[in-house]
């Protein structure tokens, strides 16, 4: 498949460029496809290119020494990933995996340097993309650093739980919540809610049974709420 100018136009790096400029940039782009669940980048490996998602979705993540995964971003069509090492010369900061069959456009580190030298005006576009990325990560760091997020998630679970054990077991069920809604209520990112639920399950306080979150140790959750307040 040939690199398409129309697709290039929709990538924030190249917004506002003339058709002639886009044609010139097209010469530096290579295409890459991957199957669902295929690893595209491994963190700490030498960085070779910045990638733009043309179709499908990519997940970037870090893995802890114990094998725990922290999702950093979901990259959708038009968005880029692995930008930072292309400019700072370091290794891949995170791993990336295809969430679906994907098509990517890539620009190698040396080609990106050439593009920037020839068309310094696109630096403004790139600064905007990197600035948005920094804002996203500052917010994520803030959430992950606050120990009491897990306590807030525990509190929310207790508030929205239908109690099948107490005297009001016939009470009408409470509203169901998505992870996105839990994140909005608790004031955190969806990724942090996912991690908190996993942690609570590992501690044996809850059991996630498909679309049901079963509180198996109410007292443990109450203690977490107490400890975080």
């Amino acid at each position: 498949m040939a690199v398409e100018i129309e697709l290039l136009k929709s990538i924030p790096y190249f917004s506002g460029l003339s058709p002639t400029e886009l044609e010139a940039i097209k010469q530096h782009i290579f295409e890459k496809s991957a199957d669902k669940n295929e690893l595209i980048l491994l963190e700490e490996e030498p960085a070779e290119a910045v990638y733009f998602v043309v179709s499908g979705a990519v997940k970037t993540f870090k893995t802890s020494a114990e094998g725990k995964e922290q999702i950093l971003c979901i990259i959708r069509p038009g968005e880029s990933f692995n930008d930072v090492p292309i400019f700072d010369g370091g290794p891949n900061p995170a791993s990336a995996i295809a969430m679906s069959p994907i098509t990517l456009y890539g620009i190698s580190k040396t080609d990106m340097e050439t593009i920037l030298r020839e068309r310094p005006s696109i630096a403004i576009n790139i600064i905007k993309v990197l600035a948005e990325r920094v804002r996203h990560f500052v917010s994520l760091v803030e959430d992950l650093s606050f120990r009491h997020v897990i306590g807030r998630v525990a509190k929310l679970l207790l508030e929205y739980a239908t109690d099948h054990t107490g005297p009001d077991k016939e009470a009408s069920p409470k509203p169901r919540l998505t992870q996105q809604e839990m994140a909005a209520i608790v004031g955190t990112a969806r990724e942090v809610v996912g991690r908190s639920l996993k942690a609570l399950e590992e501690e044996g306080a809850i059991k996630i049974d498909r679309h049901r979150i079963v509180i198996t140790d109410k007292k443990a959750l109450e203690e977490m709420v107490e400890a975080s307040s």
Binding site: T178, H211, I213, T216
Partner: peptide, 14 residues
């Protein structure tokens, strides 16, 4: 935000 995977939250102490 067109897809929702909502969770039912219940207390079922073992």
């Amino acid at each position: 935000g067109a897809i929702r995977c909502p969770y039912e939250i219940v207390i079922e102490e073992s």
